[in-house]
Write a protein that binds this DNA or RNA. Structure first.
Lengths: 127, 127
DNA sequence: CCATCTGTTCTAATACTATTATAACAGAAA
DNA sequence: TTTCTGTTATAATAGTATTAGAACAGATGG
């Protein structure tokens, strides 16, 4: 049983909420390399969403190389290959840039921004 | 003349690209408190997009309190009121969280993540 | 081997968002 | 008073998100 809650009325699409939640579970170490993910059908039933929505989330995770989908069998969490570091690094930087810019505009100091980042990292690593 | 380039074929909606670009200009100090923004018509003409798309970007910026729209007159960059710090702070944290989680999963160390954040801040503040 | 489970693929419908195009309106500005 | 401004309205198009239902074929386990 996967402890995940979806907000159907969120502005964030369900399949993206799901990818975020699963990545967070990986960050927290609750999903580890090699762990199997639920089948799209059972997971969809648990979450009360459509099979295709879960499938879309899985393919998003596969695109980002966080899981491996074995055709007609299932999906498992996959370790990140080090040689793709550059690929991932660029995505992270691109995603971070507009948020940091916004933080600067609202008047946050470098120290404050780093503190927020540290706080988030601590929360994810802790426990 | 505002030095902004839009990618019409990006996965990111044009109106969001515009908001990001404008916020970045504010972060870089090229748009300062009280500076007027181009009219939605002239800006749209310059960018080669529709008037309504620029208007949507402006209202997105107003919602985030980065500009002030004076009805039937124009829009100006507005300083951030300190008493809204909590409001902004939460948005920043919420936006940052999934990206940090992703960074951790791809194996970035705390030091590396902070380095990327510092690099972005330096780029925005520098020059 | 066989029944079941798996992801895959297809069609289809609905709702919403993004973008563009026109047009008209009323307040602001010069 | 003419021009510029954001505002509002209608409409069309394209794309995305979500759901539904069904069929297919490879994988799995008894």
């Amino acid at each position: 049983m996967m402890l995940i809650r979806i907000e159907p009325d969120s502005e964030i699409p369900i399949y993206l909420q799901l990818t975020h939640e699963l990545i967070e579970l990986m960050a927290r170490g609750k999903l580890k390399d090699g762990d199997p993910l639920p089948s799209v059908r059972s997971f969809a039933a648990d979450l009360g969403v459509n099979m295709h929505t879960v499938n879309k989330a899985y393919h998003e995770l596969e695109r980002k190389q966080f899981i491996q989908i074995i055709p007609k069998s299932g999906a498992i969490v996959s370790s990140i290959s080090n040689d793709m570091a550059q690929f991932h690094h660029e995505r992270i930087t691109t995603a971070l840039q507009p948020v940091i810019a916004e933080a600067l505009v609202i008047g946050m100091s470098d120290r404050e921004i780093k503190a927020v980042v540290s706080s988030i990292m601590k929360d994810l690593r802790g426990e």
